[in-house]
Design a protein around this nucleic acid. Structure first.
Length: 815
RNA sequence: GCCGGGGUGGCGGAACCGGUAGACGCUGGGGACUUAAAAUCCCCUGGCCGCAAGGCCAUGUGGGUUCGACCCCCACCCCCGGCACCA
């Protein structure tokens, strides 16, 4: 587990930790070697922002927060391997961020480029595309603006195809997350086509410049009657400069550029455009097509220019109608209107090509690859795949993060810090103003350095890394947390990884989880890990709501686990949070539910207390089934059936709520048994209804109850470890639950001796037969047909059919 | 608009492969214990009709497949999440 040390964990956070702990404890008891560590995602903006406000150094507040939260986790009894605890703000961790950065720099997976980037004015830093949510900052919601900056990027797009294809192998991930990643990567296969620019003076002469467009519908190329450039397109300046009305066009372009980027991106701004006065040649038809500039064309996708096919693209259709541009139907399908004039909307389905010269009569999509080949042979196009996924911008203009290990030398240029000089230690800044550029830029002794290559004067990179870098590989560090020679020993990672069970909030679906998948591939290509995917099974747990809202400090609806712990204890809290709903669902916090869990634990306690003297003071032989009373057999059956249910609910299914329900049923059964025993067994013993110890010498009873209670306590222990440990000792076991084995069940014993078989007549249940298990079908049929409850409905009618499902039901069809 | 997940009592939720819908818990009601209360223990608790036996209705809506549908198919409504002018 890995958490940001915000200071106080609320029950929403804690739910995730408890889920992990239940799984870990169960697996451990079932004989697995379990690595269940905890680490701190300790760099980040909140600590730095707090420093700006309060003057407390991020390091001070971070470690204070860690101490508090660690206490909370320990009070909850989460069984973490604290010896492996890591904190990303320590040089012994972040030096390996730097190491990996340099390895990626060597391989051109880390590179620097100037580009338009997302800027959050509140956080005073750049954001990656994944960190922009609804046009705002993922952390504070401030609308993102665009800045043109020189930044470091990780080339995640190098793995785009693989990241997409391998999603199919993630069969134990929620489909939702897989889909989100698929959408995020956004692969589209199409073609890049070249439209030669014509000169302004002579409409048939070529200007020697090409406009490239990306299209997924090359089959519609002959219907491309105009081109539209993004206002940011490289050619815009030139076209505007060469126009007769330069000033007028310039003003229009500027107006587009000033339009709110997020509004442009979400399509809230009305589609607009204007003609540049110039044309280009449609490479398939040889016709000149007018070049427009439009505010709806995205500069960052494809080539920043699109071909307008109004008959077969809705946007182009609206644009053409608005500006009275030529519309030409080139694909005929049943939906296509008879004429362009009759069109009210574009038709986007595939069909037969028409008005397409030599391509007439061809069928799309089949013809598309041949059209690409045709273009390629003439040097006017090629097939191309575009991704929505962009490279990951990792530079952050902030202090509390990993320094980027790069030096800028006047002579040698961009130079990586030599591996042996790592870590580049974050200098101790004492004043936090929140003003200006990167805080590190003001630390002269940090900035001014010598070039590792030429020893000349040089300055350091002053940006720090996105903290998502820290969290993209921490799970590998857990395998070998103190290694000071490498990020981790590949052998340790080979032993423990990929992570078998990984849980977290769905908010990480495309942030952390795609970055980690990327890093795993980088490590793989560095020869350090032997797998492709970091997390075999993923569980996205739901949030805990209070009064219908997400818990947050600002809303003032946070339930502090420590308060609940004071009142009800850690076990009741753990049990409640696991029982209230399946792990992946959102839940509404209720105090009465927590009280119910508390009551259940008290009920178990009283039960054990009543029996412990009888059980703990006697040795008991193995159970002889033949000597058991009916009640004892029933209890034993319930015990074994409960073991079966709880075991499978916990392990492959992770249905923690129903596992607890099964334990509750067993407890109810035991109460019933105890009460019945005290009534009928008055001669041989007495049992207390109000907590009086059960007195009995009957070994069979003791054996059966001991079996039930032992199993109950062991199976309860992943949920309620503290209570269970006490009970285990009360029951006379030495060595503690650590040495207890998970109970096993006997499928034969778990089977009920008698079963109830419903009898349906024409699909309605009319009777229930109680018969011995394994009653043959013939007998069932005879019993069913003779049953008076059934004959009421069959009398005087013909039996058309009898369906018998073994051990489940009899279904009669009559008419 | 596209993609994904949902819709079951007063509430949270069960129902594992198409086979007894509502396990378990909460809430509410009744009883036992107690001078009394709390705690505890036991019973009841989807709706309607009925003295009862029993019957009818009921898993968002409407159809369908099937001996049998919460479950599969078709159409639709609503809720949640993601993507969204991606050419």
């Amino acid at each position: 587990m890995f958490a940001y040390p915000s200071g106080h964990a609320h029950v929403g956070h804690v739910r995730n930790y408890i889920i992990g702990d239940v799984i870990a404890r169960t697996k451990r008891m079932r004989g697995f070697n379990v690595l269940h560590p905890f680490g701190w995602d300790a760099f980040g903006l909140p600590a730095e922002n707090a420093a700006i406000q309060s003057g407390i150094h991020p390091e001070t507040s971070t470690f204070a927060n860690i101490a508090h939260m660690k206490g909370q986790l320990q009070r909850l009894g989460i069984s973490y391997a604290w010896a492996r605890e890591i904190a990303t703000c320590k040089p012994d961790y972040y030096r390996w961020n730097q190491w990996l950065f340099l390895k990626m720099f060597e391989r051109d997976l880390a590179y620097r480029k100037r580009s338009s980037v997302n800027w959050c004015s509140s956080c005073q830093t750049v954001l990656a595309n994944e960190q922009v949510v609804d046009g705002g900052c993922w952390r504070c919601g401030t609308p993102v603006t665009i800045r043109d900056l020189e930044q470091w990027f990780f080339r995640i797009t190098h793995y785009a195809d693989e990241l997409l294809a391998a999603l199919d192998t993630l069969t134990a991930w929620p489909e939702k997350v897989v889909t989100m990643q698929r959408n995020w990567i956004g692969r589209s296969a199409g073609a890049r086509l070249t439209f030669p620019l014509l000169t302004g003076a002579d409409p048939s002469g070529r200007a020697g410049l090409d406009i490239e467009v990306f299209t997924t519908r090359i089959d519609t190329i002959c219907g491309a009657t105009f081109l539209v450039l993004a206002p940011e397109h490289a050619l815009v300046d030139r076209l505007v400069g060469e126009a007769s009305d330069t000033a007028g066009l310039r003003a229009k372009v500027d107006r587009f550029l000033k339009q709110e980027r997020s509004a442009r991106l979400t399509g809230e701004v009305e589609k607009e455009g204007f003609f540049t006065g110039r044309s280009a040649l449609n490479p398939f038809t040889g016709e000149p097509v007018p070049i427009w500039i439009g505010n709806f064309v995205l500069a960052e996708y494809g080539t920043g220019a699109v071909m307008g096919v109004p008959a077969h693209d809705q946007r182009d259709f609206e644009f053409a109608r608005k500006y009275d541009l030529l519309i030409r139907i080139v694909v005929r399908s049943p939906e296509t209107p008879a004429s362009e004039a009759a069109m009210t909307a574009a038709t986007t389905n595939y069909g037969t090509l028409v008005s397409s010269g030599e391509w007439n009569g061809e069928e799309a999509p089949a013809v598309m690859s041949r059209m690409v080949a045709w273009a390629e042979a003439r040097g006017i196009g090629r097939s191309e795949v575009q991704y929505r996924l962009k490279d990951w911008g990792i530079s952050r203009q902030r202090y509390w993060g990993t320094p980027i290990p790069i030096v800028y030398c006047e002579r040698c240029g961009v130079v990586g810090v030599p591996f042996e000089d790592l870590p580049v230690v974050l200098p101790n800044v004492t004043e936090f103003t929140g003003q200006g550029d990167s805080p590190l830029a003001r630390v002269a002794e940090f900035v001014n350095t010598t070039c590792p290559t030429c020893k000349g004067r040089a300055r350091r990179e002053t940006d720090t890394m996105d903290t998502f870098v820290d969290s993209s590989w921490y799970f590998y560090r857990f395998c070998d947390p103190t290694n000071d020679r490498r990020a981790f020993d590949p052998a340790s990672v080979k032993y423990w990884c990929p992570v078998d069970f990984y849980s977290g909030g769905v908010e990480h679906a495309i942030l952390h989880l795609i970055y980690s998948r990327f890093f795993t591939r980088v490590f793989r290509d560095l020869g350090m890990v032997d797998h492709d995917e970091p997390f075999a099974r993923l569980l996205t747990q739901g949030m805990v709501l209070k009064d219908g809202n997400v818990m947050s400090k600002s809303k003032g609806n946070v339930v502090d686990p420590d308060d609940m712990l004071q009142k009800y204890g850690a076990d009741a809290l753990r049990l409640y949070v696991m029982f209230v709903a399946p792990p992946e669902k959102e839940v509404e916090w209720t105090d009465t539910g927590l009280e119910g869990s508390f009551r259940f634990l008290a009920r178990v306690w009283r039960l054990v207390d009543q029996w412990r003297e009888a059980i703990a003071t006697r040795q008991a032989p193995a159970i002889d089934p033949a000597g058991l009373t009916g009640e004892e057999q029933t209890l034993r059956r319930k015990t074994h059936d409960t073991i079966r249910r709880v075991t499978t609910d916990l392990d492959p299914r992770v249905h923690l709520n129903t596992a607890i329900a099964a334990l509750m049923e067993l407890v109810n059964e035991l109460y019933g048994f105890t009460e019945a025993f005290s009534r009928v067994g008055a001669s041989s013993g007495s049992a207390g209804r109000s907590g009086v110890a059960v007195q009995t010498e009957r070994v069979e009873t003791i054996c059966v109850v001991r079996e039930a209670v032992d199993a109950l306590v062991v199976m309860l222990s992943p949920f309620a470890p503290h209570t269970s440990e006490e009970l285990w000792e009360l029951l006379g076991h030495s060595g503690g639950l650590r040495e207890a084995a998970w109970p096993t069940f006997d499928a034969e014993v778990a089977k009920p001796p008698e079963i109830e078989v419903p009898v349906q007549v024409n699909g309605k249940v009319r009777s229930r037969l109680t018969v011995p298990a394994g009653t043959p079908d013939d007998r069932l049929r005879a019993l069913a047909l003779a049953d008076p409850m059934v004959t009421r409905y069959t009398a005087g009618k013909a039996i058309k059919n009898v369906v018998i499902v073994k051990g489940r039901l009899v279904s009669l069809v009559v008419r």
